[in-house]
Write a protein that binds this DNA or RNA. Structure first.
Length: 604
DNA sequence: ATAGGGTTAG
């Protein structure tokens, strides 16, 4: 098979600048195929290609395949563009070369090119095979192109290529990446005998889409079938433990990993460090971390982030120094951890310094998340105007999330005027987020503007914006128990509610005064308001912990929203009155309560 | 040639 035009090389824009043909022993010409295997750069590859044409050496589809494979191995804009020239120039196209192209595109900046090219070749007489669809699904997953993915899915079914060990996992991955987890589950359920890779794809999908319980239940099912989990299974299971804060299961996975030799994997160790930190046992993270001989960027970032979430900014910063001493390059996530650390401790100058070092010294382009961290850093520290100006100065259009972070800072610092202004900016962009209305409405309530509270609640209802209910969970004897705010307020006779009432009574003796300032209803009596905060989910979970765990042991609670001021006060007193350490993970960070104090120093 | 650790918006 021949290249259709020998002028291909000169038609490629970079060709002139690199044309320095290799020296050729004309008596004994080298085989271009062997040259490719020694090739180290795209430039060299172009030279080899030029040489193969000029010297009229024999080349065939396997030669072109090797050239294209080289280009798609680590795809860049120019290597993919060169590969595309090679592909387009072929007089008769070949499915193996297309597969290589699709694989390259799927990992490139422009994944959907794979789909576009596929549509083009469909008109030619080229039959896709088992290797074609995984790359295409991966491309659609990367581009979050659900519609294109669905089209390809039905085509693969029509061609009878959907029931295959390579195709199924990539199909599951496509649907979970496009946030259609249930479609992914349908694919999974239709597999006759799912292999480990398919289980992994489905478990990972659940974990990534914040459905850890379903991930874990599949993991158990897998073990029931005596399918042997591999290191990838453990990574997803560990990330599910992290989401749930399930320390018991996390420890069990750690033992399992030790027994089955998975602790040699750097990634598994990183996931373990992260899991221990997110399940509230920072000490275990540190122990594992210090034992690791080879530490890469991710391991350092995990530890920096772990200290940050536990409010230990100094240790985060120390970690960064150590990392630099050992010559490990930080990346954008390392800096997210550092900014987060500074933000939780109100270290505005240090945070600004890291931001500017990230940009100037390490040449990392800030992402929207870094901007968010900066708004949080400034806003939380009470520099609300600076935060506002920061958002205004950005080179991008502010997202609702950036304003939302500022709104939440307005709420911490009770700045109703700015909060109203910021809310307007948010609602212009997105008026469906219930949490925004709640923050503003609580601010009105705190300032006794009951009429505004009522009208805002009405607006919220009209726009059908719903608030995520507060939920706290606690793990006791391997079982995770969940509590929702205000749950079973009517059925006051349960053991738990009696325990909670008892707990509040004792706290009051120690000086606890319920803080009802954020309760929004003007027409409630003081007693009703007190009841409203008494049944907050975190108090329910802590009371459950007091009731069901041995005296003196640590109570670990995970909450899905930020902890409220009243619950924070109550937890401090609980740690004193009942002699318990309470570790509370809220959506933002950890609070360690002990001896009547909290590790956050009441700054959160 | 399929699944993949640290961030994921409070």
């Amino acid at each position: 098979m021949a290249i259709s035009s020998a002028s291909l090389i000169s038609s490629f824009s970079h060709a002139e600048t690199i044309a320095k043909p290799p020296r050729i022993d004309t008596a004994n010409p080298p085989n271009p195929i062997l040259l490719i295997s020694k090739c180290t750069s795209l430039r060299e590859l172009m030279q080899i290609h030029a040489y193969s044409i000029k010297s009229h050496l024999h080349y065939d589809v396997s030669f072109i395949t090797k050239l294209v494979n080289f280009c798609t191995e680590s795809p860049t804009t120019s290597s993919m563009s060169y590969a595309r020239h090679l592909f387009d120039a072929m007089s008769k196209q070949d499915i193996m070369i297309f597969n290589s192209m699709a694989r390259g595109y799927s990992r490139s900046e422009t994944p959907l090119e794979a789909f576009t090219l596929f549509v083009e070749i469909l008109e030619d007489d080229l039959s896709p095979d088992h290797y074609t669809f995984p790359s295409l699904f991966k491309a659609c997953a990367a581009a979050k192109a659900l519609e294109e993915g669905r089209q390809l899915h039905s085509l693969s079914m029509k061609l009878g290529l959907d029931d295959n060990v390579y195709v199924c996992p990539s199909l599951i991955n496509l649907y979970t990446e496009c946030e259609d987890v249930d479609a992914a589950r349908c694919v999974f359920d239709r597999i006759n005998e799912p292999c480990v890779v398919s289980y992994n794809a489905m478990i990972t999908g659940y974990a990534r889409r914040n459905r850890p319980n379903e991930a874990l239940s599949l993991f158990r099912e897998m073990q029931g079938k005596s399918l042997k989990p591999n290191e990838i299974t453990l990574l997803s299971v560990l990330s599910s433990c992290s989401l749930l804060g399930s320390l018991d299961l996390g420890r069990w996975i750690h033992e399992y990993a030790k027994i089955h030799g998975f602790c040699n994997y750097v990634k598994v160790n990183t996931a373990l460090i992260d899991m221990f930190a997110k399940c509230g046992s920072l000490d275990d993270s540190v122990t594992l971390f210090e034992k690791m001989r080879h530490k890469d960027t991710q391991v350092w970032s995990a530890m920096i982030g772990a200290y940050a979430n536990h409010g230990e900014a100094e240790r985060s910063m120390l970690m960064f120094e150590r990392m630099r001493c050992e010559n490990v390059q930080p990346d954008e996530i390392t800096f997210l951890g550092l900014l987060n650390a500074c933000s939780h401790r109100g270290l505005v100058e240090e945070g600004r310094e890291y931001f500017s070092r990230m940009v100037n010294e390490f040449k990392i382009v800030p992402s929207i998340k870094h901007y968010g961290s900066m708004v949080d850093l400034l806003g939380r520290a009470g520099r609300l105007d600076d935060a506002y100006r920061f958002i205004d100065s950005l080179p991008i259009n502010p997202t609702p999330m950036l304003w939302r972070i500022l709104l939440s800072a307005c709420s911490s610092h009770n700045d109703l005027k700015l909060a109203e202004e910021v809310s307007v900016r948010i609602f212009e962009l997105d008026d469906s987020h219930g949490g925004d209305y709640v923050i503003l409405s609580n601010l009105y309530a705190r300032n006794k503007k009951w009429r505004d509270v009522d009208s805002l609640r009405k607006v919220m209802k009209d726009r059908k914006a719903v608030k995520v209910p507060g939920c706290s969970s606690i793990e006791v004897k391997n079982v995770v128990h969940e509590f929702f705010s205000g749950e079973c307020v009517k059925s006051r006779n349960t053991k738990l509610h009696r325990a909670l009432d008892e707990m509040v009574k004792e706290l009051k003796l120690a000086g606890y005064v319920p803080d009802t300032s954020m309760v929004v209803h003007a027409d409630m009596s003081d007693q009703e308001k007190e009841i409203a905060v008494r049944y907050h989910s975190e108090k329910l979970a802590i009371a459950f912990g007091l009731l069901n765990t041995p005296p003196g042991t640590t109570i670990r609670v995970v909450k899905n929203l930020r902890v409220c001021r009243d619950c924070h006060n109550a937890a401090k007193l609980i740690s004193l009155v009942f002699g318990r350490r309470v570790v509370l993970r809220d959506v933002q960070r950890f609070h360690h309560f002990g001896d009547g104090r909290c590790s956050c120093g009441d700054f959160w």
